[in-house]
Amino acid sequence: MTAYFQIDGVPIPFESGQTIMDAALAAGQYIPHLCHNPEFRPHGSCRVCTVRADGRFVAACTFPASEGAKVECASDELRELRNGLLQMLFVEGNHVCPGCEKSGACQLQAVAYYCEMLAPELPHFFPRRHVDASHPDLAIDYGRCILCELCVRASREVDGKSIFAIGGRGIKAHLLVDSPSGKLGDTDMSVHDKAAHVCPVGAILIKHRGYDRPIGQRLYDQRPVSVVGDVIQAEETRDD
């Protein structure tokens, strides 16, 4: 017999060991998320998938589903929390959407649109972060990194290269590249690596193809992320 829990009153079937997120995505129920990707181990860092399971705030991507649990996902309270988290992600970095090649196909934008975030209404940190264009095929704009560690996980778990890690801590936490110079050009990173394609924002960019889709035809221009899916899925089905 299949076990069920509920998300906003909708019964969701699950198998033992599945998280709320696993089961929800399998059942076609969208829960906003950024650091989560079913291909990698759950991470639980962005907290955008925060839901209320039997009254308790938990991250859907790491919390196990359990029989009969009542999960709230779309309440006003959760929308406001999620909106706040997204605003935090915007103000801690330098997200100048009009000047970003990823704009329109950026998951941070898309999730924020989905959550109807109109503006990051917090003080902006404007951190000074550099751009690393040392690699022939890839560039890193550190100002856009949201520390989801998808590239860290992809490089370690799929590419077997461990090119990325996290350094610093607190608001100064930042992405590290595995070379003595700290430059991506001095690593054996390839544009064909999984890690080159998982970035949900414009932090890791593939060179030579910026602005290749006109406005109106970009990934999230017409349909929301709940319908289109994550950036990484779209990246993999790109025809080029």
Binding site: P98, F126, R128
Partner: peptide, 18 residues
């Protein structure tokens, strides 16, 4: 009303904040 990207987060001119 903050109208547009620059009013909202500084926008392109705020790239000088680097």
């Amino acid at each position: 009303v903050a109208l547009g990207a620059c009013a909202i987060n500084g926008g392109i001119p705020a790239m000088r904040n680097q």
